[in-house]
Write a protein that binds this DNA or RNA. Structure first.
Length: 495
RNA sequence: GGCGCGGUAGCCAAGUGGUAAGGCGGCGGUCUGCAAAACCGCUAUUCACCGGUUCGAUCCCGGUCCGCGCCUCCA
């Protein structure tokens, strides 16, 4: 596809992406509520938007990426209440938020997610929220009930446009709790009167705290302007969060709000949405104990960001194997010539990549182009010379992987020969028995195996190989070259 | 009930009005002391089902069935 096309939730179709200001993209993505560790669903969302972020920059856009941090909400308050302590509730909420904010960044870093430009917080933007609420009251699209302030949905004609919902239908079938204070069940809180034991801030309507949706309106319009290019988040946020956010923002500024709404699909388990109520939430930190973050990332980008992606151990294993195929190709190509990867990337391969990505960030199709080059390499790498142009195509593969946030890792190592070995058989037995595979031990074992092979001692040779194999280190015997060991560094034991 | 997304080989997954990418797995072979990796060959006469439009549909239209999501906190 020539020119970037994105699926705009509001239009329910793909359309050509044209930023408001040439060469610049302003993007806002709903961030996390920092009351717990991140799960796979968060990874899915932030990997998806990281790829969008990276790809936009690859296309030459200057991207301003804002992602909020919700450090004030019911879940956070409840959780903070559980913790004992003499400190006041506001401090406890803040401490809890700080802790999980730090955890969030750690997890995202491990997934190789680039930082956004700004991470505004709810508590840091109360004045702007009050300003918007006051403006909405002034315009008559919001109303007060005691210490609460509500947005009056009926006063905003475009309500329902984003989510494709008809307010009348919503009213009819809604399971919305009837709140006597609201004029209409769809109306939502902009400001909530302070309750005992909750953090609160002063306002013209009394002590209280902001409603859920208002923070995003405040931060996005404040940092990116009334109208900006991309607003993203998980599909579950379309309604009511984004619908409400859009309504109150447009009612306040009188201008269009986000121009393109992008929403990522869910992670499912056995085809069911991963959610706390179903008890099938997979914490990222637990997943990382078993699967490397880069494998998790690769798994996520092997399907389109809007489709549901079903999590299973088998799927992660498969992603790991597929990623190894890429890494191994990279390693073998480096053996063929380090300089390959400083060559200018092949324009044809890059064009194919862009063609795929321009179609609403079709990473699965983009990977197919990568595999085509990988296959070409594998078919030819043993020949005295690589086919003409292949090195530049390989360089393109590396570049593409980098744009997708997957940095290739060379798994091929040529252990230097160990020093004098007087009795290789005894040494090998000792090292295998010791069961600690450091880099030195690996080197010694490979040397022992060489000696064993020279003596046609296949039993010991294979025993060494099996031992290493059990440690995740495979050996590659080569004609006319020393045996190479294939592994990822983290598979070795520390010294 | 309303709105939306989807049903493609053993599994995952692209895709196009002109006769099915890719990955993983499996089977057979090559290479190897044997392996691993890699390569070669095989692994969907067919794209949920039924109609329609068309010279021709998996791709367009209508309907049916099934799965999932949102409508309530949720990435």
């Amino acid at each position: 596809m020539s020119g970037l096309h994105v699926y705009n939730t509001r239009k329910r179709k793909k359309e050509l992406f044209e930023p408001l200001e040439a060469g610049k993209v302003k993007m806002y993505v709903c961030g996390v509520t920092v009351y717990d560790y991140c799960h796979l669903g968060h990874a899915r969302c932030y990997v998806a938007f990281d790829i969008i972020h990276r790809y936009l920059e690859h296309l030459g856009y200057r991207v301003t990426y804002v992602q909020n941090i919700t450090d004030l909400d019911d879940k956070l308050i409840n959780r903070a209440r559980e913790s004992d302590g003499e400190k006041d509730i506001k401090t406890r909420v803040a401490e809890l938020a700080a802790r999980f904010t730090a955890a969030y960044f750690e997890d995202m870093d491990r997934l190789n997610i680039l930082r956004a430009d700004l991470y505004p917080t709810a508590t840091g933007n109360i004045p702007r929220m009050r300003e918007i609420i006051a403006g909405l009251l002034e315009k008559g699209v919001a109303y007060r009930r005691g210490g609460d302030v509500y947005f009056q949905v009926s006063a905003f004609p475009g309500y329902g446009e984003l989510s494709g919902k008809n307010p009348d239908d919503l009213r009819a079938g809604a399971r919305v709790e009837v709140d006597g204070r609201k004029k209409n069940p769809l109306d939502f809180a902009l400001w909530k009167e302070a309750a005992p034991g909750e953090p609160s801030w002063p306002s013209p309507w009394g002590e209280g705290r902001p409603g859920w949706h208002i923070e995003c309106s405040a931060m996005s319009t404040n940092l990116l302007g009334a109208t900006f290019d991309i607003h993203g988040g998980g599909q579950d946020l379309i309604f009511p969060h984004h619908e409400n956010e859009r309504a109150q923002s447009m009612a306040f500024t009188g201008k269009p709000f986000a121009r393109y709404w992008l929403h990522n699909g869910f992670v499912t388990i056995n085809r069911e949405k991963m959610s706390k109520s179903l008890g099938n939430v997979f914490n990222l930190r637990d997943i990382f104990k078993k699967y490397k973050p880069r494998v998790v990332r690769f798994f996520l980008l092997s399907q389109h960001y809007r489709s549901p992606v079903d999590y299973s151990g088998e799927a992660l294993d498969e992603a790991g194997r597929a990623l190894f195929r890429l890494d191994n190709c990279y390693g073998l190509a480096r053996l063929a010539g380090e300089e390959i990867f400083s060559l200018p990337p092949d324009p044809g391969v890059m064009a194919g990549f862009e063609e795929a990505m321009n179609d609403d960030f079709n990473t699965a199709a983009a990977l197919a182009g990568v595999y085509r080059v990988v296959e070409e390499f594998y078919k030819n790498y043993r020949k005295p010379e690589l086919p003409s142009g292949l090195p530049a195509r390989l360089s393109a593969v590396k570049k593409i992987c980098a744009v997708l946030g997957v940095d290739l890792v060379d798994p091929i190592h040529e252990p230097a020969p160990a020093g004098e070995i007087s009795d290789y058989s005894a040494l090998a037995d000792r090292l295998i028995g010791g069961d600690t595979l450091t880099e030195d031990n690996l080197r010694a074992l490979v040397s022992c195996r060489e000696l064993a092979r020279q003596n046609r001692d296949w039993e010991l040779s294979d025993r060494i190989r099996d031992y290493l194999g059990a440690k995740g280190v495979s050996l590659m015997d080569r004609k006319g070259a020393p045996t190479a060991a294939v592994y990822y560094p983290e598979q070795l034991d520390g010294e």
